[in-house]
Amino acid sequence: MRSQAREPIDPANVEWTRVSDKLIMLRIIGWLIGFLIALAIFSIPLVLKLLGFWSELPAFIAWGLPAVVLIIGIWRLLLIPRQVRAIGYAERHEDLLIRQGLFFQRVMVVPYGRMQYVDISVGPIERAVGLASLKLHTASPTTNATLVGLPAAEAARLREQLSSLGEAKLAGL
C-alpha cells in the first residue's frame, strides 16, 4: 500500500501505511443502509401530502426534507474514499502512530510500553471481504486507538508485533 499525501499536522519523516481500499466498499455499504433509512423516514411527510392525508403541509417542507437528506447523503458518499485514504498508521521504534480524519484531523502516538492489550474484531461483512479491525488499549480510555479496515493477515501480524513489543517495553502505569 502506497503512502499518502502529507498533511500539515503529520510529524516529519513518517511513512504512513494506508488501510485496505476494500474499506471504501464496506463504508459505502454502511452508508447506503443508513442513507436509505434516513431517506425513507424523511420522505414520509411528502408521501402523506401526495396521498392527500396532509395536504396543508407546505410544499417546500415536503420536498425540502428529502432533498436535504439527499444532498447530505451524496456529500458524505463523496467524502468516504478520501476519509478512508486519510486513515494511516506507522510503526516507529518506540511507538505506533495513527492518523485519521479529513476536516477534523487527528494524529495519535501510542507508546508500545503503554499498551495494555490489543483487540482484533471482525464483523460479518468485514469477514466476507477479508478485513479486520484492531484496537489498542492503554490505561487511558481517551486513547481511542482503533484501526479499521486492515487486511486480516496484516491485522494478525500487527497484533503479534505490538504484543511482543509491548511486552518487551512494558512500563508500569
Partner: peptide, 21 residues
Amino acid sequence: HERTQSLALHQGPLTRRLGLA
C-alpha cells in the same frame, strides 16, 4: 512525563486555516 499514556494532535478546519493545532 513518565505518566503520559498517549498523545494526540488535533486540527479542525478553523485551526488548519490559522496554522494552529
